[in-house]
């Protein structure tokens, strides 16, 4: 009895601590500063879209949003494709060479971004890949390859050998086996990895901050960060930015929650 009471109390309090700030943010994005400060928890008396117009139009979050869509839209499928090819090759070969290859790529997970970002910047600068959305796609692929290979190789190794043997017996070469056997049976793990990559690439701040200094090439997190200086304590505008920046991920979360939990957790367990 006492246990159930404690349990309910703890869960209720924590649910309030998660939900209330989020509600304040959503309500706040429709308010003026005065209204937000006067009654932060109340729904807006008048649902005004003025903040949204200002944030998306004048402050350039609209352009940043488009850039983020382009960068994430290319980074996620390309990383998945390249990593799934590698994982298939690694999972289907044996011996020390295969193990070494796997270890070598996966070792990249142990290198924190801040450890090689400076030489990467120099390199991208030399190749003319700074201030370029393509450069961001490339760096996203490179930095998330190790973990994507790790997650997908782990999955492919759990597949029964008979699956591949049957394909080989049917005369299917490695490439055909990859796209007609491996990809179809990997849909759940590919989806989970895709969501994991989507969250990382969409939310990434470090590389765009490092590589981009033209305002028109900014992605969402950098544009949002720049609000801090621009609007200082104009919280309704900051909140509007938060809502716009999070919208695609939140919508995806509502529909694909299972994959979010699987993907982000697999990333944590394995990373």
């Amino acid at each position: 009895m006492r246990y159930q009471l404690t349990r309910r109390a703890v869960l209720a309090v924590y649910a309030v601590l998660v939900i209330v700030p989020l509600v304040v943010v959503i309500f706040g994005s429709f308010k003026t500063s005065q209204e937000l400060f006067a009654s932060p928890f109340a729904p807006p008396t008048d649902w005004q879209s003025g903040n949204y117009q200002k944030v998306i139009g004048e402050s350039g979050l609209g352009i940043a949003f488009r850039n983020s869509v382009i960068v994430t839209g290319l980074s996620v499928p390309l990383t998945l494709f390249i990593a799934s090819l590698a994982s298939y090759g690694i999972a289907r070969t044996t011996g020390w060479k295969s193990a070494l290859l796997f270890g070598f790529i996966v070792l990249g997970m142990a290198v924190p971004a801040q450890a090689n970002m400076i030489p990467q910047y120099v390199q991208f600068e030399t190749f003319g890949l700074t201030n370029s959305l393509f450069g961001l796609v490339l760096i996203n692929i490179v930095t998330t390859l190790p973990i994507a290979v790790f997650i997908m190789t782990g999955f492919l190794k759990t597949l029964p050998k008979e699956l591949f043997e049957a394909a080989a017996v049917d005369g299917s070469g490695p490439w055909r086996t990859y796209h007609s056997v491996v990809l179809p049976v990997s849909v759940p793990s590919l989806s989970a990895t895709a969501i994991f990559l989507f969250v990382i690439h969409w939310n990434d701040l470090l590389y765009p901050l490092l590589f981009i200094n033209e305002a028109e090439k900014r992605t969402i997190p950098v544009a949002l960060l720049s609000f801090q200086g621009e609007f200082l304590t104009d919280y309704p505008l900051l909140f509007t930015g938060v809502v716009v920046a999070s919208a695609p991920i939140v919508i995806a979360y509502v529909f694909l929650q299972r994959y979010f939990v699987a993907g982000i957790t697999a990333g944590a367990v394995k990373g």
Binding site: N203, L205, P221, L224, G241, V242, A245, S246, F260
Partner: peptide
């Protein structure tokens, strides 16, 4: 699932 910048704000 939110970005760190969003959480910070």
């Amino acid at each position: 699932i939110l970005s760190s910048v969003s959480v910070a704000f």
